[in-house]
């Protein structure tokens, strides 16, 4: 099966800092679900930003390596073009439009679709998250954390992406809600065949749903393999406790 996303030897740095990612390689197969785990500050968000073209916004730059999406080299491509190619994300901190209504948030996500398809896709998202339909006229900023996360997911899914990147979906949410949202997400993955890269600090949740997993430790891939193996290994504990290997030297 061809790979949906291939990251090859990626090194990324922020202005006036050492490397945040050091020679990272990772593959998400078509239709596959991959977990990316790691402690706070490991570089997970940086990897997502690099893939989705948000790096320039944060004064970061790619020092080395490339990213391919469905076989096409997308390293350094503008963020909005990637979304239109079918690479959507639920960013860290959700980043919904707080002052716009729920429905308007979704419409923004659907703005690049042909006009005739918008209503249909909107219906599909509402079917997935009925709560959003109930709140369609409400200002997004006034909803609960879980509802906002559903909205961020809905906005990412409304364009019918081929690949979805999700950064810390569980952050700040009650376990039951996390469980429910993940269930919905998985049903989407199955029906649409959307490939997913799921970033979590909360390893248990992600490992439950992913087929393969990578562990990122201070900017480097410390381990990768199928989810069960990674989950059972000691590398995972080491990464979180900061015991794995030597500190990568600057440059």
């Amino acid at each position: 099966m061809a790979a949906m996303l291939e990251v090859e030897g990626l090194s990324v740095g922020y202005a006036r800092k050492g490397l945040a990612l050091d020679d990272v390689s990772l593959v998400v197969p078509t239709g596959g679900i991959v977990a990316l785990l790691g402690a706070n500050g490991a570089g997970k968000t940086t990897l997502i930003r690099t893939i989705t073209g948000l790096l320039p916004m944060h004064n970061g730059r790619v020092a080395q390596g490339r990213v391919r999406f469905a076989g096409v080299d997308i390293t350094g491509m503008a963020a909005h073009r990637l979304v239109r190619l079918g690479l959507a994300q639920v960013p860290e901190g959700r980043l919904i439009f707080k002052q716009l209504s729920v429905e308007e948030n979704l419409q923004v996500g659907a703005a690049f679709l042909p006009r005739g398809k918008v209503a249909e896709r909107l219906e599909a998202v509402f079917a997935l998250f009925p709560r959003l339909r109930e709140r369609r006229r409400q200002a997004a900023g006034l909803m609960s954390g879980g509802e906002q996360q559903m909205l961020a997911l809905g906005r990412a899914l409304i364009g019918g992406p081929r690949l979805l990147l999700v950064d810390e979906l569980s952050l700040g949410l009650a376990p039951l809600i996390v469980e429910a949202i993940y269930q919905q997400l998985m049903s989407v993955g199955e029906t649409l065949g959307t490939a997913m890269l799921i970033v979590e600090q909360n390893a248990h949740v992600a490992l439950e749903y992913a087929q393969t997993a990578y562990i990122l430790d201070r900017g480097r891939i410390a381990m990768s393999g199928d989810a069960a193996t990674v989950g059972a290994s000691s590398a995972i504990a080491d990464a979180y406790l900061g015991l794995a290997g030597e500190v990568p030297a600057d440059v």
Partner: peptide, 12 residues
């Protein structure tokens, strides 16, 4: 409302 949010949603 937010530049990063707009980029994430596919706005140029």
């Amino acid at each position: 409302n937010g530049h990063e949010a707009a980029l994430v949603s596919g706005i140029n």
